[in-house]
Computed example of a mutant assay.
Amino acid sequence: MPLDRFIRALIQWQAVDRPAPVRTLTVEQARRRYADSAARTRGGAAPEAVAAVSDRLIGARDGSFGVRVYLPVTDRGRLVTYLHGGGWVVGDVDTHDGVCRRIAAALGAVVVSVDYRRAPEHPHPGPLQDGIAAAEWADAGFPGREHVIAGDSAGASLAVGIALHARDHGTMGFAAQLLVYPPADPDLTSESVTAYGSGYLSDADDLRWYYEQYVPEPRRGTDPAIDLLRADHRGLPPAVIGTAEYDALHDDGVALAARMAADGVAVQQVPAPGLVHGYLLLADVVPAAAEATGRVLAAVEHALTPVAVPH
């Protein structure tokens, strides 16, 4: 369908003062620009109500990192460990505060948002190890809940890596995966990279730079937590995969859904017609983005709801 009119306006506004490619910035400049952009897209909207929010510190073998815990107003016995997007380099618990509040409210879940240490200071497998530690901490701290491992963009890639680790090491069991516009092919060879890799708020060259910071190129095709299309997904929990129509990573999400389904995973692919990469962060200012966010969360609800078997 046509590009959403609000998205088109954002693209036209951005074109007036086209931002510099991320590879021309320092890491701190890139992080500040991403944070500023996320703050603007909140649009002054009141945050989704939750019962309580607290920041905690988790000790790791080589330091520590933070998590932000959201308690829902209506608790339905769910738990979500959430990994934010941002190319493993930018983004944090503040940029994705609104996303996590929506998840807590929609699913009636405790949400543990992971402030994993980022590349290039902490390249792969550092962010993944932090994500594993955070998910294990959440599982132990909120036992007996349906546990969803979730993330958007780079965070969705981390979420799959955590699910693979949990399956292989038996450290915890997940009830579902929520993966929104995941990067699955580190070589960025899909047709959507060519079609939508420029002029749609997320540039292919920026994606390449993020991969360069996160993982050395020789390792990309050998690690299943990075090259998700070559991973063995057998035995993983049901997955909800959200894709955006005008996204360089659109085909990655479609291909990942197909690969998971071929490996026997129950998959719901939820398209977002007319939208671009990063639509979760646009839900306060773009009505269609709010609707798409609602659809992916409704799909998670469906994955968590037992199907009644007629007697």
Rank of each mutant, 00 (worst) to 15 (best):
G66R: 15
T74E: 15
D75E: 13
D75A: 11
R76G: 10
R76V: 09
R78H: 15
V80Q: 08
T81D: 05
L83Q: 08
W88R: 01
V89M: 14
G91A: 11
D92T: 09
T95G: 10
T95W: 10
C100E: 15
A106N: 07
A106M: 08
A109M: 10
V110I: 15
V110H: 08
V110T: 15
V114F: 11
D115I: 04
R117E: 07
P123C: 06
H124Y: 15
P127L: 06
L128M: 04
Q129L: 15
W137Y: 14
A138V: 11
A138P: 07
D139V: 07
D139H: 14
A140V: 10
G144I: 05
G144Q: 04
E146N: 05
H147N: 02
I149G: 01
G151T: 02
D152E: 09
S153M: 03
S157D: 00
S157G: 07
L158F: 00
G161C: 05
H165A: 03
G170P: 13
T171L: 14
F174V: 03
Q177C: 09
L178C: 12
L179K: 13
D185S: 11
P186L: 12
D187I: 02
E191T: 03
E191F: 02
V193C: 12
A195C: 00
Y200F: 15
